[in-house]
């Protein structure tokens, strides 16, 4: 043990040296990024940025705070515990309507990952197929379903909504015919279990809501710009690497978080499936996380359908412009 670790005295000496010579080793600025879920390859680009030193080279000491079933992203960002949080346009819109001073400074998922998953024996391939089906979903997502129906001229009353927790079991147990879920998690789990689920991406049927968006407060945008730019720059570099090798990102995830109970094959499949949602001709042309006035306008329209009216000012591209400029 003493061979590997510096002794206590050495450590103290090192610490003292660091204190005495602040100019030699520039102290890294601590910054927290609040993730929206438990650690998984969903945040693979961030892990690459962390392990490749994209942040530390820029003088940032970033901690990645995991989310969870009871860890909303907005409070820590409002409280300043986290500089940036990973939210989604609809969540952000709701928070802003409740008085939170947020701006969206980047969009990781260009296409919304919400999907309807069903089994091949009784598939849902188009929104019209939903009519007469039992749809399992969290009731909190009712506005999502209503928006989808409005966008596709379907009577929402024709769908039997069954409240379920976020879990594929009700579908495979036959309690429901289809599920409202992310295309990148429950369908992947079902595939790993040997089932062959059908997924219909809501984004392919007019549902335009940016997901995995980076949010920061207006105050941070004013006072902590350099950190925001450095953070987003690292994200961009990390996710660019991710696009080049999603499976390597999965390997890195499992290696960095051995206690998260992650299955490497599942992580690889998820890593591959989120590529088309995150990267597009737009990001290839303009850079990771980019958004245009047109994509923002489409979001504003869908959010209005969701009962969360916002103006285009919610999106602030100035950080990305510095990053990619």
């Amino acid at each position: 043990m003493t061979l590997i670790r510096p002794s206590r005295r050495e450590a103290l000496a090192l610490g003292a040296a660091a204190l005495l010579t602040p100019r030699l080793a520039r102290a890294a600025t601590p910054v927290t990024l609040q993730l929206s879920w438990l650690h998984s390859v969903q945040f693979g680009g961030s892990y690459i940025a962390q392990s490749a030193g994209y942040w530390s080279n820029a003088g940032l000491d970033v901690s990645l705070l995991p989310g969870g079933p009871n860890a909303p992203v907005e409070p820590p960002v409002v409280a300043g515990t986290a500089l940036v949080g990973i939210s989604a346009a609809d969540y952000t819109a709701a928070a802003v309507n409740q008085g939170a001073p947020f701006r969206i400074i980047g969009v990781a998922m260009q296409k919304n990952p919400f999907a309807i998953a069903s089994l091949p024996g009784n598939p849902v391939n188009t929104p019209a197929d939903l009519v007469g089906k039992r749809l399992g979903m969290a009731l909190a997502n009712m506005p999502v379903l209503e928006a989808l129906c409005a966008l596709n001229d379907i009577d929402v009353a024709g769908i039997e909504v069954v409240p379920t927790q976020y879990d594929a079991a009700p579908l495979v147990q036959g309690q429901v015919d289809c599920l409202l879920c992310w295309a990148t998690d429950l369908p992947v789990a079902m595939t790993m279990q040997g089932l062959d689920p059908v997924t219909m991406l809501l984004a392919d049927h007019g549902y335009a809501v940016h997901s995995q968006t980076y949010i920061a407060t207006e105050a941070s945008l004013k006072d902590r710009r350099p950190e925001l730019v450095a953070l987003m720059k690292g994200e961009t570099m990390g996710w660019t690497d991710y696009e080049a090798g999603p499976e390597a990102a999965a390997d890195l995830t499992v290696q960095m978080y051995p206690d998260a109970g992650l299955d490497i094959e599942t992580q690889k499949m998820q890593a591959l499936r989120q590529v088309p949602l995150m990267f597009s001709d737009l990001t290839r042309a303009q850079g990771f996380g980019w958004f245009t006035d047109e994509t923002v306008a489409a979001n504003v329209d869908t959010l209005a359908l969701l009962g969360k009216p916002v103006s285009a000012d919610l999106w602030d591209r100035s950080i990305l412009e510095e990053v990619h400029g």
């Binding site: 438990l38 650690h39 705070l65 995991p66 989310g67 969870g68 079933p69 009871n70 860890a71 927790q165 976020y166 879990d167 594929a168 079991a169 495979v172 998690d185 429950l186 789990a189 079902m190 790993m192 279990q193 978080y257 206690d259 998260a260 109970g261 992650l262 299955d263 599942t266």
Partner: peptide, 23 residues
Amino acid sequence: VGEFTGAERGLGVLTVRALRALD
């Protein structure tokens, strides 16, 4: 249940993971 507020490890984390993975 405390781990649902965002944790890196623990039985609560594994429970959420297992339920979602249909494991």
